[in-house]
Structures are given as C-alpha cells and as structure tokens.
Design a protein around this nucleic acid. Structure first.
Length: 417
RNA sequence: GCGGGUGUAGCUCAGUUGGUUAGAGCGUCAGUUUGUGGCAUUGAAGGCCGUGAGUUCGAAUCUCAUCACUCGCCCCA
C-alpha cells in the first residue's frame, strides 16, 4: 500500500531518473554552482512568514510533525528558504557571491494529479550576492541549458515577467484594486476570490467578460521606475543576444511572497494541468529575514523532477546507456569458484560483472540476455580441460575460445568499443 | 477543499439485456536435437472481478457506502 501522492521507481525508470540528476549536476558544475544539502525537517519559522502566511503552500499544504515542546517541525515544502537559513548559519553570507545548488524531496499536502505529488523532488539553484542583471541572465540561461540537455527544449517554453520592487508592486496592486473595485460584482466567481486573495492573479482570468474588463486595466509596466524598467529591459536584450527565446507574460505571478523583480517559468503544454516544470525569480529581501542587515541580491529557480521525468519518459527525449554487464556462466558447480575468481578480477578492472549459477545453459543465456550482457563468458567442461573458456559477444552473436590467461585482457580491450 | 472518471491476472484491457467452470494480448514459467539468449512455436501457472453492505432464486454486471487511483478546479515544481 503506497502512501497517497507518492511514487515508486523501478530499476528501469531509475536509470532515466539518474540520468536527469547527472545532467543537472553536470550543468551546475559548468556554471560553478556547488551542491549543498539541508535537512528535510525544518522549524516552521523557516517558511511561514518568509513564503507568506496567506500563500497556499504555507496556509494549507505543509506536513506538520508532532509538536515537541514549543517548536513546530514541518517537512520542507520548498528549499530556497532553507538554503537562506544555511547561508546564515554557515557563514556563507560573509563570503558573497555564492552559487549553490541542491536536489532533494519536498512535501506538499495537495490533491495528487498527473505530475503533482505530495512527495516530489526539486532541483534548485541559487545565485546569492550578485546585483547585476547578468545574474538573472546566467540563471535563466542555465535553466534553458538544462532543458536542452535533457531533450526538453522543444517541449517547453520560457516565460518571463517582472514584479518590480516591493513599493512598485504595491502601487500597482493598489491601482489594480482601485480599477477593479467598481467591477467586482461583474467578475467571475474565480476572479472575485483572487481579487481578495491575490489580486494580480485576476489578470490571469480565462473568463471572456473578465478579459474585457481587464483590457483597460492599469499595466505593471507603467508602475516601474526607471531603474526597474531598465533592469528588466537589459535582461530581455541579453536573452535575445544569447538566442534564448522567451515570451513576456504580464500575467505571470509566482505563488510565494518573497519574489521581487524578475520572475520566470518554463512551461510545457504536454503535462495536462501541470504546465510549469521550472520556476524561479529574484528574492532580494529574503536574506534579511534570516538576519542580514541589508537586502542581499539573490535569484534562483527550482525544477520539478517528477515533471521532467514524465516528459522525458513519455517523449523519449533522453537515451539511457545500456548496462554493459559481463556475465559469467559456470556450466557445472565445479567451475563456480573459478567463475567468481574471474568476476572479481574483472571488477578490479572496473568492469561490471555478474555470475549466473542456476538452471540449464539455455536458461542461463536467457538471464544473461536480460542482464544486458555485452559479453558472456562460459566456463564449460570441454574448454576448461585445455584451460580455455568461451567468450560470446552478445550483440554480434559471435564466440571464440580463449585461454583463461587472456580472458581479462581481451574483455578489457573490447569492453568500451 | 470542490467537481468528473475508473477499479477484472504482474502489465494493458475485453466481459454482450444480471444466468453455470471469468477471457485476450504482453509478460512469467516449462518444453521444442539436455552445450547457447533475442525470433518462432507448444503448453502451464496465475484472479476473494478494490473493500463492505444491500436488491435478487442468482451479481464482475444493479443500488448505497468506503478506500484507492486518475483527470480537472484551486495552487504549484
């Protein structure tokens, strides 16, 4: 009985899964991002105020653990706040800039759906302490690069927007509120809810009448001061120069309160309702929540492993290498020891090797085949009399008889070809 | 939290207006000159028809409940 909202991964799936992980960390290495790890368990205070008390993630989606005295523990619902905590407690804010990466399980108590699970895994990167817009560009470039490397570039697209500074955003929200208020009883039920909860989300309404009202609504762009506008334009210009295509989505609103200025998402139409596979943005104010005296320019993103995995699996965008095992078959028990001995020798050479001890030769060959054997070595009575063994190339269906003394060196020679 | 759909073999699914021993394909296992895998072929095993109650002479099939999965809404990765 699997717990609701969790998934198992079979060996065959795990290979693709690991390939995605390896790709992520290879990208991190190329951009100079170092891996960190924080606990899955955190004090609730890491998240509640920092993500926003009114956000869904905090208000209804966290897994609580039994209270011990006056501390309340939760399973982390995301990891940007956790990384900020790590930076503070590990003294990393003293040595800026920091470029950090993480991977691990996150937990949100939601209704499971395709690509949405209660335990899911996020890849994330955070660039802390670089105020230049080049940090944004680098970060986004990295995200796009990651998509390309796992073959999802064709299936996804980048959307970007800016929320401006906190004061600019507040001014805009106020203006939007003032504009929409007279229309409030005309708005769709959904938009009314958004009006009260997160007014920017009203902009994203699919309702035709709502859209008509929104046609003449104030736009964010006009509330940006010179500095913010220039910052955003610089990013867009750079993306174009680097050949990264994007769509400016003025309705892009992120679900966590700590974002300011640049926000972006990588979306796919191929996953049903779960269109976002990666999301991120700037969060210059978050470090202060963890004790920094002044705003610390920071930007990062997180990608959902399960969503990437589903896309890569369904669209077969990533090839996983064959296992390339060597399988040793001892045809009679008398050769078991010998088989193990040669298996050990091969492993010492860094070559993956298994032995098969049960059943008829036919049966054992089937097992070797299923183990994706590149070569099968057969220790058979007739050949063993002359200190030789059979080496079978499973792909080519060719065999030859080799002196035992040449076995290791021959396999080693052909293993990587 | 709110809607819709589906639960039959390891997997993907059939199962006719309720009617005797519940089927297929794939997979598994065992054979097909007992010293050779993939292909082909023969055969076998494998199901409390999600769970509980009800209607009925009789339920995989109808009703209710419950659980799980799934797709949307909301939100997000």
């Amino acid at each position: 009985m699997r717990v609701t909202g969790t998934i198992d991964l079979l060996p065959s799936q795990m290979r693709l899964y690991n390939k995605i992980c390896e790709t992520f960390f290879a990208i991190c290495k190329l951009y100079g991002y170092e891996e960190v790890a924080t606990p899955i368990l955190e004090d609730i205070r890491v998240f509640d105020r920092n993500l926003g008390l009114e956000t869904d993630v905090v208000s209804k989606e966290m897994f609580f653990l039994e209270k011990k005295q006056d501390e309340t523990l939760v399973l982390r619902p995301e990891n940007t706040a956790g990384v900020m905590r790590l930076c503070q407690e590990g003294g990393l804010f003293q040595k800026l800039p920091q470029r950090l990466a993480y991977y691990g399980p996150m937990f949100r108590y939601e209704r499971p759906q395709k690509g949405r699970y209660r335990q899911f895994h996020q890849f994330g990167v955070e660039c802390i302490g670089v105020a230049s817009y080049m940090a944004d560009v680098e970060n986004i470039q990295m995200a796009v690069h990651f998509m390309q490397e796992i073959g999802l570039a064709e299936l996804t697209e980048l959307e970007i927007h800016t929320l401006g500074s906190e004061s600019e955003r507040d001014a805009y929200k106020q203006a939007l509120h003032d504009y929409l208020l007279p229309y409030k009883n005309e708005l769709s039920e959904n938009s009314v809810r958004r009006f009260d909860k997160n007014i920017l989300r009203v902009l994203d309404s699919k309702n035709v009448h709502d859209q008509k009202i929104l046609e003449t609504a104030p736009v964010m762009r006009n509330f940006l001061q010179m500095e913010s506008a220039k910052y955003f334009d610089n990013i867009l210009e750079s993306l174009e120069n680097f050949g990264i295509s994007y769509t400016v989505n003025p309705f892009l609103v992120r679900g966590l309160d700590y974002y300011n200025q640049t926000v972006f998402e990588i979306k796919t139409p191929a996953l049903g309702a779960q269109s976002a596979v990666l999301g991120g943005g700037r969060y210059d104010g978050l470090a202060q929540q963890f004790g920094e005296k002044t705003p610390t320019p920071s930007i990062g993103w997180a990608a959902g492993m399960e969503r990437l995995f589903l896309l890569a699996q369904e669209h077969q965008t990533l090839s996983v290498p064959p296992r390339k095992n060597i399988v040793i078959i001892a045809m009679t028990e008398a050769f078991d020891q010998e088989a193990q001995k040669y298996a050990s020798l091969l492993r010492k050479e860094g070559i993956a090797c298994l032995t098969v001890h049960e059943g008829t030769l036919r049966k054992r060959m089937k097992i070797a085949s299923r183990l994706e054997a590149k070569y099968t070595i057969i220790f058979a009575p007739k050949e063993m009399e002359n200190k030789t063994a059979i080496l079978r190339d499973m792909m080519r269906s060719e065999e030859r008889i080799l002196p035992l003394a040449d076995l290791i060196i021959t396999v080693k020679k052909h293993y990587d070809t």
